[in-house]
Write a protein that binds this DNA or RNA. Structure first.
Length: 412
RNA sequence: GUGGCUGUAGCUCAACGGUUAGAGCGUCCGGCUGUGGCCCGGAAGGCUGCGGGUUCAAGUCCCGUCAGCCACCCCA
């Protein structure tokens, strides 16, 4: 009897897992550079938390949640995104009172019960950053530039940062009305857009069927504050030397965004073209019962980021530096203790099976990609030595155990 | 959630409804008793995703189911 993995869930094996590690490592470095600290939040929260934050009418909440009742009947859910949990933690732990900035990053798996395809899984890793308490457009630019910097260091190409402003509670409602009347005058809207018309008319602009046809749609008239904010945001992106494209049709699928929104898109992932997305959510913390706190943040999909740099996966594999080979079956103990000695000296090493033939062990040494083969037979053991062979230059010489560490480290 | 395509060895794929399901690559062992890659020889590895049905006979046809992929949808 064997088992398949559950639909949408999968094993991540080398070298893909090495790519994930690399992405996480680069991200952590950049977060540190930008003054963000790590927050770890639960995978399970009350279902209601996500209604309040992500939004009752969003697809995420309406049809993609892993929702369940626990043994005591509590209505719970696996997190579908990170922002609600971070916002909840910010409020619960009174983080606004620490005197420190509210910059937090997380690296965590999210769960959404969507129909899977490549680049879209039911369990997927998001790397996210939230800056809570920050109201200035500098923070928007800092956040977006930090995102761009991560992908730049990953060596990702063919990416496009799209930005837009959705306005605020004082200018968005007017636009909404205007847009509804414009859309109502349009014929041939698809059935899902007819439904969106009421709930979220902005989303119609983003529709793949109707969107392209809507060329003369009214653009948003930002209020004075929003306009100033948006211009400053763009200026600071330019100061950061980050390329961007204004997309007046860019809308985000979560309810909490205001003003700045942005998305990082790729041309190499088919329909799953969004590798990261985020924006400003000034009202969320207060709506959730916390202190009025402006905020800006984003999340990137580690899986999609990994796919974009798939050509480089081989580079991330970690190989041992030394491969131990016993010249005969009696040398197992000696070789094994040498391996443990090298490891205690912080030199990575590996071996196959000291009872196998010499040839077989050498083949394994070759395949391991190690720089050195450390070969020991009767002579070497007698003299406390090992024959160190550089597998690339083929140079070989006997060295004393005491000199081994230095000689190897010099070559790395 | 809707529609479509696809599941055969570790991987990429063959096999008209008809013997014992094959190949290349990879893996392992050996040729070389202490020197890897190349070469040569050999071996292991399959309940053809799973379950039913049709048939004298099913990897092949039908149904169901599970899984993957593509588009929709959605988003990271």
């Amino acid at each position: 009897m064997t088992y398949q993995t559950i639909r949408g869930f999968r094993d991540i094996l080398p070298p893909q897992s090495d790519a994930f590690s690399f992405i996480e490592k680069i991200s952590r470095e950049i977060f540190t550079l930008y003054g963000y600290r790590e927050i770890r939040i639960p995978a399970v929260e009350y279902f209601e938390l996500f209604i309040k934050s992500t939004g009752e009418t969003t697809d995420i909440v309406q049809k993609e949640m892993y929702r369940f009742k626990d043994a005591s009947g509590r209505d719970l859910a696996l997190r579908p995104e990170g922002t609600p949990g971070v916002a909840r933690a910010y409020i619960n732990n009174n983080l606004s009172q620490t005197g420190l900035n509210g910059k937090y990053f997380y690296i965590a798996d999210m769960f959404r019960a969507e129909r899977p395809q490549a680049g879209r899984y039911r369990q997927f890793e998001q790397i996210g950053a939230e800056n809570i308490g920050a109201s200035s457009p500098y923070s928007d630019a800092e956040s977006a530039a930090m995102l761009a910097e991560i992908f730049k260091r990953l060596g990702a190409e063919n990416l496009r940062l799209e930005i837009n402003s959705l306005g605020c509670p004082s200018c968005r409602p007017k636009y909404r009305e205007k847009l509804i009347s414009y859309l109502s005058s349009q014929k041939d809207l698809c059935s899902s857009c007819l439904q969106r018309l009421e709930k979220n008319p902005l989303r119609v602009l983003d529709c793949k069927i109707d969107g392209p046809k809507l060329t003369d749609f009214p653009s948003i008239e930002l209020c004075g504050d929003c306009a100033v904010h948006h211009e400053k945001f763009k200026k600071c992106l330019s100061l950061s030397k980050v390329d961007f494209f204004e997309n007046p049709k860019l809308v985000r699928g979560l309810d909490y965004y205001q003003r700045t929104v942005f998305e990082l898109k790729t041309s190499s992932l088919g329909a799953q073209d969004a590798v990261a997305g985020g924006g400003r959510y000034d009202g969320l913390i207060k709506d959730m019962g916390g202190p009025a706190s402006p905020a800006v943040g984003w999340a990137l999909g580690a899986d999609r980021a990994a796919m974009i740099i798939e050509k480089r996966w081989g580079e991330f594999e970690k190989k041992s530096n030394v491969f131990l080979v016993s010249a005969d079956k009696e040398r197992g103990d000696y070789c094994f203790s040498l391996a443990q000695f090298l490891r205690s000296e912080n030199i990575s090493c590996d071996f196959s099976d000291f009872s196998l033939s010499f040839k077989s062990q050498m083949r394994s040494a070759d395949k391991s990609g190690a720089l050195f083969a450390a070969i020991a037979g009767e002579d070497e053991e007698k003299n406390g030595e090992v024959s160190l062979k550089n597998l690339f230059s083929k140079e070989q010489k006997k060295v004393k155990k005491e000199e081994l560490t230095e000689i190897i480290k010099r070559s790395l």
